[in-house]
Design a protein around this nucleic acid. Sequence first.
DNA 1: GGTGAGGTTTAGACACGTCTCAAATTCTAG
DNA 2: CTAGAATTTGAGACGTGTCTAAACCTCACC
Lengths: 219, 219
Amino acid sequence: MSKPHLSAAIQDYLKEIYKLQSEGTRPTTTAIARRMGVAPSSATSMLKKLAALGLAEHSPYRGVELSEAGSKIALEVIRHHRLLEVYLAETLKLSIDAVHEEADRLEHVLSEELEARIDEQLGYPTHDPHGDPIPDAGLRMQKRRLRSLDALQPGEEATVERVPDDDADLLRYLARLRLVPGGHVTMRRAEPFDGPMTVLVDGDEHAISRELAMQIGIA
Amino acid sequence: MSKPHLSAAIQDYLKEIYKLQSEGTRPTTTAIARRMGVAPSSATSMLKKLAALGLAEHSPYRGVELSEAGSKIALEVIRHHRLLEVYLAETLKLSIDAVHEEADRLEHVLSEELEARIDEQLGYPTHDPHGDPIPDAGLRMQKRRLRSLDALQPGEEATVERVPDDDADLLRYLARLRLVPGGHVTMRRAEPFDGPMTVLVDGDEHAISRELAMQIGIA
DNA sequence: GGTGAGGTTTAGACACGTCTCAAATTCTAG
DNA sequence: CTAGAATTTGAGACGTGTCTAAACCTCACC
Ligand SMILES: [Mn+2]
Ligand SMILES: [Mn+2]
Ligand SMILES: [Mn+2]
Ligand SMILES: [Mn+2]
C-alpha cells in the first residue's frame, strides 16, 4: 500500500473542503467549485475521484464528507501552507498580503524534511500571519473561538487576532490601517442600521464597514 | 504579448537542453529523453511543442537548438534552481546531496519577488553548492574552464571546485571523503592503464576510479 | 402532492504530457 | 554503395483536470 501520488489539484480540493467544513459551511459542490475557481461539474468529477481514492464519501446529490485519510492529507497541506506563510513573512520579509499566494504554490512541493527544518527554525509557530492556527507535526490543530470586531462595544478595546487571508488588496488595506494580528483596536462608534463602525488603531480613527468588521477576529 | 504560462515540463526540457548544449553535448532526442527520464517519442512531442512556441528550432531527424527566448527561459529556471540550492544549504542547512532534488521541484514555483529576496539575502552568490555557476539577475552566467581531478599530476595540489549535482548517493560518498567544493586535494598516485587514483584529502588517503576523478572539477 | 427553481451530475470535448508499437530516416560498416 | 543498426518520428491510446451544454435530482412552496 504505497501512496499513489496525490496531485496538487487533489490536495487543493481536500484543503478547501476541510476549510469549508471547519468554518461550519456545508461543503456543497457549488461552494467547493467557487472556492476552487472551477465549474461545478469539475468539482463533481473531483468528488468522484476523491471518493474512489477513499479520501471522501460522496453521496450523489446529497453531499461530501472527508474520510480520515482525506482529512489527514488536508491537514498536511494546511500545515505546509501556514508554516510557509510564517516562514516567508519572518525569514524573507514578505508582506502579509503576498504570503498566501506564494504559499499556495509552494505547499505542494515542500518535502517533509524541509517542513521539519522550517518548523524548527521558526520555533514551532502555532499561528500563521493571518492568525489562522497551524496544525502541529502530529496534525493536531488548536481551534480558538474568537469574537469578531463588529461585536465590540463602543469604548471596548481588543487585540486583532485574525484577518482574512486570501484577498491581497484587502490585506494591503488592512495593513495600512494596522488592523492586522497584533494590532490594538478600540471601538469608537457603531452607526445604526448596520452602518459603518469607527475604530481607533494606533491613534488613528478609521471607519470600516460592518461587513469587514465581521471578518476580523479579536480577543 | 502575454506569456502563455510555461508548464513545469516545458521548463525542465528547456533547462536540460540548455545544459546539454553548454556541456558541449549535442542535444539529441535520445539524450534529452534520457535526461528527462522519458521515452524518446515523448521528447519528440515536446520538441515539436517547443518549436511551435518559438522556444526552439527543430529540424526533424537533424536536431534541436534553443531560440533566444528558449535560452532565456532555460537560464531563468537554472537561476532558480541554483539559487535555491544555495539557499537550502545555507539557510536551512540541507546537505549537499539533498538540495538538488528539492530545488528541482521548487524551481517552478518560485516567484520573481522571492527569487530577488533570496538572492539578496544570500549576498548574490555566483555558484551553487556543487560549484555550478548561477546566472545573475540579468541572466548572464559566468563560465569557467576547470581542470578535472584526473589531470592532476602526482604531488600536485588543488582545490575542488565542482562535483556532479544530481546523484545523491555519489554526493554522500564524496561528502564523506570531503571531496566537495572547497576541499583541498593532493594527488598521490595514478595507477597505469586508466587505473584508480589515490588522493589525499584532509590527511586521509582515498582511492577513487579515474571515471569519478574525471567528473570532479578543480582549480 | 405537484411543480418549478436551483443545485448537481452526466456527456462529450479538449489540452497536456506520457506511453507503446510501428514506420521512417539517418548513420555506419563492409 | 548499400544493408543492417541506430535513431527519430508518427499513430493511437491513456490519465488528469478542465470546460459547456444538457439532463437530472431535491426541496420548498403553493
Ligand atoms: Mn493562506
Ligand atoms: Mn495550492
Ligand atoms: Mn542541481
Ligand atoms: Mn524541475
